[in-house]
Simulated assay, not measured.
Amino acid sequence: MTSTTERVAIVTGGSGGIGQASALRLAADGTAVVVHYNGSKERADETVTAITESGGRAVAAGGDIAEEPTATTLFDVAEREFGGVDVLVHTAGIMPLSPVAQLDLEVFDRVQRVNVRGTFIVDRLAAQRIRPGGAIINFSTSITRLQTPSYGAYAASKAAVEAISLILARELRGRDITVNTVAPGPTATALFLDGKSPELIEQIANNNPFRRLGTPKDIAETVAFLAGPARWVNGQTIFVNGGAA
Rank of each mutant, 00 (worst) to 15 (best):
V33E: 09
V33K: 05
V34R: 00
V34M: 03
V34G: 03
V35F: 07
V35S: 02
H36W: 06
Y37M: 04
Y37I: 01
N38Q: 12
N38S: 10
N38G: 08
N38Y: 13
N38P: 03
G39I: 07
G39C: 04
S40C: 10
S40F: 02
S40E: 08
K41D: 07
K41M: 10
E42T: 14
R43K: 15
R43H: 14
A44L: 12
A44P: 11
E46G: 12
T47N: 06
T47F: 05
V48Q: 08
T49G: 12
T49I: 07
A50G: 04
I51K: 05
I51T: 11
I51Y: 12
I51P: 12
T52H: 10
T52Q: 15
T52R: 15
E53W: 06
E53K: 13
E53H: 14
S54G: 15
S54A: 15
G55S: 14
G55R: 12
G55W: 14
G56L: 13
G56W: 11
R57Q: 15
A58C: 11
A58Q: 10
V59K: 12
V59G: 09
V59Y: 11
V59C: 10
A60S: 15
A60C: 11
A61W: 05
A61K: 08
G62N: 10
G62Q: 08
G62P: 06
G63A: 13
G63Y: 09
D64N: 14
I65A: 08
A66K: 01
E67L: 09
E67V: 01
E67R: 08
E67F: 06
E68M: 05
P69C: 09
P69E: 10
T70I: 10
T70D: 08
T70Y: 09
A71I: 01
T72R: 13
T73N: 14
T73I: 02
T73G: 13
L74Q: 04
L74S: 02
F75L: 06
F75W: 04
F75M: 05
D76N: 01
D76K: 00
D76E: 08
D76R: 00
D76H: 00
V77W: 00
V77T: 07
V77G: 00
A78I: 02
A78L: 01
E79C: 00
E79D: 09
E79I: 00
E79N: 01
E79Q: 03
R80T: 14
R80Q: 14
R80G: 08
E81V: 06
E81C: 01
F82C: 01
F82I: 04
F82K: 01
F82W: 00
F82P: 00
F82N: 00
G83L: 07
G84P: 04
G84D: 07
V85D: 03
V85Q: 03
D86M: 03
V87T: 13
L88Y: 09
V89P: 06
V89H: 13
V89N: 09
